[in-house]
Design a protein around this nucleic acid. Structure first.
Lengths: 190, 190
DNA sequence: TTGAAATCTTAATCTAGATTAAGATTTTAT
DNA sequence: ATAAAATCTTAATCTAGATTAAGATTTCAA
């Protein structure tokens, strides 16, 4: 699916709007392991994942990392705080597989919304839906045990587990890799 | 601060836009303890808190509740999932103090955005900022101890602690009231 | 191809926070 | 005003998940 198709699921675009949008899009191939955002730096663009898989994670001053989200094909991701407020990021975004992404730089993003209000609507819907997901995630974290959260993760991202290192899944779930190992063993034996 | 002033911090409104917006607004006084959203029911409106304090919480099938957020003066709140998708809510919203709120019904909300795109921009910004807050909250929860989260809560909501029952603060922090009691005692003795 | 580095597993021990229970304090309805 | 209900505190005990450590497996660069 192209990025235009994924947008046109939510809003209809005229030829002109689609053309302008495409013109500001940067396309980039990222190799597995490469970073698209670095902690301490300002996140200059909003990222759309065309293929592959990215992960955005928080780096705690004590050195531990915490995965905020995985972004697979047709997801948007970014450290929204850094992008929006033009402040240094507390997050890093790393490619977990060779990936193809589109980047929209902030200047272009701002001008796009200014010029073609249909994109205000699109991003309003995108953020609104993302907010729902984030509210669910908060509840997930406080209202369920690690094992329940793992079950839910497997349902939600059935393909991810095959190529994402366990330690990142553990981090996403808010537990240690050792404890995830223990949960998996327990589930095997059932 | 009026609701119009709070909106005009983000976008400029013409007389007509402001007038139309005001005309669809419902105003309601809610008594302390009253529910504005009930689990199992569809959330028909988006809520703006003019004065007082609301709390949105999740009710786990096992009977425990989990506070998702507090909304004080000039905050917006709602079970966005239920409002957006017109599905039964998993949340309740309760007034923690006598409060005055504005309600926007979904039909009016949709029509407002259709008619006056400036509100697309406003809600895009509102959701974008809220998303930043939610991302922070997720990290807070997994990367910090209960005591650190309590410190952060006190900084973020310095006035709330005086009138919100401890048990709800504990719930917001993801701990039991007993453990919050223990943390508070420990902090007193320092 | 190979060896060093990264990742994963298992197991023992430890701890932050849960649970249970009982008493003390505060709030609320009448 | 007062009694019942709700909330808060303290303390003992328990447990989900962390930490530490060591071996096994996988990945990857040269």
């Amino acid at each position: 699916m192209t990025i235009l198709q994924s947008i046109e699921k939510y809003v209809a675009l005229s030829k002109e709007e689609a053309g302008y949008f495409t013109s500001i899009l940067e396309t980039k191939i990222v190799k597995q392991g490469e970073l698209l955002e670095k902690p301490g730096e300002i996140t200059p663009y909003f990222i759309y994942v065309k293929s592959g898989c990215l992960m955005t994670y928080f780096i705690h001053p004590d050195g531990s990392d915490h995965v905020v989200q995985f972004a697979t094909s047709s997801w948007w991701t970014s450290d929204l705080a850094s992008f929006t407020k033009v402040t240094p990021s507390n997050y890093a975004t790393k490619a977990l597989a060779d990936s193809e992404v589109h980047l929209i730089y902030k200047k272009d993003f701002d001008e796009l919304l200014e010029r073609y209000p249909v994109f205000e609507k699109f991003f309003r819907l995108l953020f609104q839906n993302s907010l729902i997901t984030h509210q669910n995630r908060i509840i997930q974290t406080v209202a369920h045990t690690a094992e329940e959260r793992y079950d839910y993760f497997q349902q939600k991202y059935p393909t991810l587990e095959q190529f994402v290192p366990q330690k990142y899944i553990a981090s996403y779930l808010g537990i240690t890799p050792e404890f995830l190992s223990k949960i998996r063993r327990k589930k095997m034996g059932r």
